[in-house]
Amino acid sequence: MLSLLSKGLVVFRKDLRLEFRSLYALNAIGLFAVTTITAVSFSLGPVRLEPNILAALFWVVIFFSAMSGLAHVFIREEEQDTGDMLRLVFPPNAVLVGKWLFNIVLLGGLCLLIIPLFVIMLGAEVGNWPAMLAMTASGVFAMATVSTVIAAIIALSGSRGALFAVMTFPVALPVLMTAIHGTRVALEGGQLADCGNDLKVLFSFTIVIMTVGFLLFETIWRK
């Protein structure tokens, strides 16, 4: 177990280093988010959005940004033929741990960008910051988990990301619905306890998907 984690960390560090060299995924998801928010901000002008619309927009931006970049960790391995080396050196689940951590960090970093943009460009007023941050963190955690598992399928299927959004959306829909609901509560100034149910659902969903991911990843990853 410990060796799995440490080997996973090696994969994670390798991906991180490669990412800083090319900045591909970072550019893809970051620019996607900025473009979307700017477009909405432009077209709205001085109009301020209601919390329910803001919450939906927030998660739609995160979802589609994730879809534009999160599959890259797996697709790169297949495109540059480094996957086989990884298959030889690391146990499958260590690879999953590495990619998973990487996607969590990537998507978490994206949120650090998106939240200020929402406050500055869209004039979002957050009623309760702790609740908002808790919802964002757990939502991103769940979203990164689902996307990582599906991204592995996508990369091995050879369709190169074209189907990523189509395939992730149905599985990620419970995440989106609960996260949007909780974020709306947080924006309207509800207490952390008001989001309790949503947090529970997100957390249990993540655990379940991750367990299934670990059970099945060997099957996916096998060439």
């Binding site: 395939m167 599985v171 419970p174 659902v201 299934v212």
Partner: peptide, 26 residues
């Protein structure tokens, strides 16, 4: 067949969340 089976299982795991938990919260 293999990848489709994996996807079907992941979707099958997500479905109970959707069908039972989400409508109950809402």
């Amino acid at each position: 067949a293999r990848l489709a089976a994996v996807y079907a299982i992941i979707a099958g795991v997500a479905m109970p969340f959707f069908m039972f938990i989400v409508p109950r919260i809402y």
